[in-house]
Design a protein around this nucleic acid. Structure first.
Lengths: 227, 227, 227, 227
DNA sequence: GATGAATGAGGTTTCATTCAT
DNA sequence: GATGAATGAAACCTCATTCAT
């Protein structure tokens, strides 16, 4: 983990003592933190429990993070780092936009199953109440994702690979909305249940490839010249 | 308010004493509850404060609802009732499916601005932690919505008004995903910020009609025979 | 106890629920509070212990007082009420100033032995750190005392009962300094020890009358025409 | 600093390792300690913070002092050393007692403005709770001061420079009470506010010379044969 | 039906002190 | 001698829930 690189992108919320801790310990604390916060939500997660599960004292936890909120935010930053890097790979390729889209959708299905906790945590923050923190987090998380989408789409737009009567930013927005919902549908209790209500199938037993193909068809017109 | 009819659809969570209370009082309690829960979230809302703001004693509140959770769920049921009836009107019409879609999107924009609290509350429950409650709520809320979408689409499908290679249920699912995100983007802090990051425009200053038209184009292929 | 009369003089720091409590309970809480704060100081006093000793739950204590500080301040206001009323009697008489002085000194010795806790509490606040609270308290406590002294002395001054080359306010200030130190010397650990170091006698075994007479002589010139 | 000489007068409370430290370090630690304790009070001062500000590790601090209390007491001893030496000069002179008194009062005004921290610290200890420590400190601090006063006054008494009907020890006691209050009035928040309430003037804007002259007049009779 | 006083478990946070290096 | 990571008891405060009236 290179904490100086990624999750200080906007603002670090851990103390210097945390930087000095062993990689193993840092990893463990954030892993346990992500697990607890994603399972119980911010309010219900207990920082004493997190400390105990991470194998450190509560006093030391407060040497690492000033407040519960700072630990929470650092967990989120860590989660984003992982989710972001997956997207990075796909979007820097020079595939055609439709190929990229297919890859992104497939990757979303794939990663959602493997990084459940990160995505649940992400869902958790979308219901954060304090406007300031919500805004900060949104900026931190959505900014890099949105830029990748918008850039790719704008390029495709320039190459006439995409409908000219679609606004690239709204296009990117709608597309990410679908992917975001897909992620949650694979991981978060409420959305999983909702998935089953709509499709009639439990998401764990659903054929991912079917979802990928259907979603591609659903958005196909966006990548097509108008009739 | 006809509590015995709508928000007992699945399971009522209020006590009999609540039914016996005056309509005015019932209305007030749920109104205040929705306001508090949507503003502060489930954990941070204070049932004693809700009682006070509603003008009743905390003792009476517990005569009406066994637990904080029951009050919360009843508030949600009340919110859904309102949101649901708006959709009902549109879906029972015999417009063509594309016209229905346009109406639904436009209604979503319209209502989101007017029923902020209901939608924030809805967002709130999507991050509910206890699996059992999440499932219950999802069933209660999503079931009637999904049925309307699925039915309408299946009808259109039967009339060849829609691509035959799309699964009607997944189609409905994707469509509702987009509408759900749209709702949140109009109301919830996090999603509002995200909207601005993607579009560059604050959602309050965005031209709704542009959003409607762009979203229609975005999903157009779904309503079209394959080339 | 008539809380609406005296300790709301400047600003009440208790909640309405406290007003509604029985006189007996109010008395008990403040009595225990004064005992604990005066014995252990503000920081070291434990609000849970105070609640327990007063026979109420900690939750109820917080229904009565928003914070530990508010309880502390209310205890002080109660203490001042008692100390103030003793002075009132003496100062409203129309004795000559020298007679008043003698009465005040004697009353100080007398009351100090009976109201140890109030005076210890008073000593406690003189070392309060937060400027704002210190100022507030000083104003509340010293104002009424100082006015009584200054008024009495100014009257004597007008009647030529007092040296004309002395500033009445500084005169009152010096006089109260001596009385304040006397109070502490009868009650507070540090000052008691100091008293013994100076006089060679433990204050409890000292003849009060000797102290009164000696102090009167010490300040005699102030009440005398210049030679 | 000659720690073996002055602030071990009664009992040293630092460990041998502290004696072996460089003068510069010793000075720094006590300076920072005095600053912190006088600014925040004993309970609120943080020994870890003091160590950091003094530029040493907390571990080393505990090599120097066994407990927080020992550091506190050593700081006080250091402060007293400074305050005491000022008095020494005046009292060893062979001025007449009235001249000495004037000098002491003037010196008190002068030093109070320059050694605020020492005096605040002194005020701090007068509210120390543990009887044992209070007694110890009183003995340590007041003993040498009182001896100087009592000795000087006794000498004057023998030379008939002072009223014969005044007990020299009580005389010294009253006099020091006034000086002690004067010190606090120049430095400590509470007493400063009180000074302004009595005199109507902020102590920083008060003419010191006026205070000196008025106080001299106030106590004049003590230095005068009876009529 | 209606009240609201009362409870107390439980959570976050602080900081004096220890001890392995 | 010197470090500072680590500990954990203890304090303040909140709030869902109960129950006597």
């Amino acid at each position: 983990m290179q904490c100086y690189k990624i999750y200080t992108m906007i603002e670090k919320r851990y103390k210097e003592a945390f930087e000095r801790a062993s990689e193993e310990r840092k990893e463990k604390i954030l892993e346990v933190g992500i697990e607890e916060f994603s399972a119980k939500g911010y309010e219900n997660a207990n920082i004493n429990v997190i400390a105990k599960k991470a194998g450190i004292s509560i006093g030391l936890m407060y040497k690492y993070f000033s407040t519960k909120e700072d630990l929470f935010i650092t967990c989120i930053q860590r989660g984003c780092e992982i989710l972001d890097s997956a997207l990075e790979e796909i979007m820097v390729s020079d595939d055609k936009i439709l190929v990229k889209a297919e890859k992104v959708i497939r990757a979303t299905c794939y990663h959602s199953k493997r990084n459940k906790n990160y995505i649940k945590l992400y869902n958790e923050i979308t219901s954060e109440k304090t406007t300031e923190t919500a805004k900060l987090l949104a900026r931190e998380i959505e900014f890099s994702t949105s830029r990748k989408y918008i850039t790719s789409i704008a390029q495709a737009y320039a190459k006439n690979d995409v409908r000219q009567d679609l606004d690239p930013r709204l296009f990117a927005f709608f597309l990410d909305n679908l992917l975001m919902q897909l992620q949650f549908s694979y991981t978060c209790d409420y959305y999983r249940e909702r998935f089953e209500i709509y499709t009639g199938v439990n998401v764990d037993e659903m054929d991912d490839e079917k979802v990928v193909q259907q979603l591609l068809k659903f958005v196909e017109s966006a990548f097509t010249f108008e009739k």
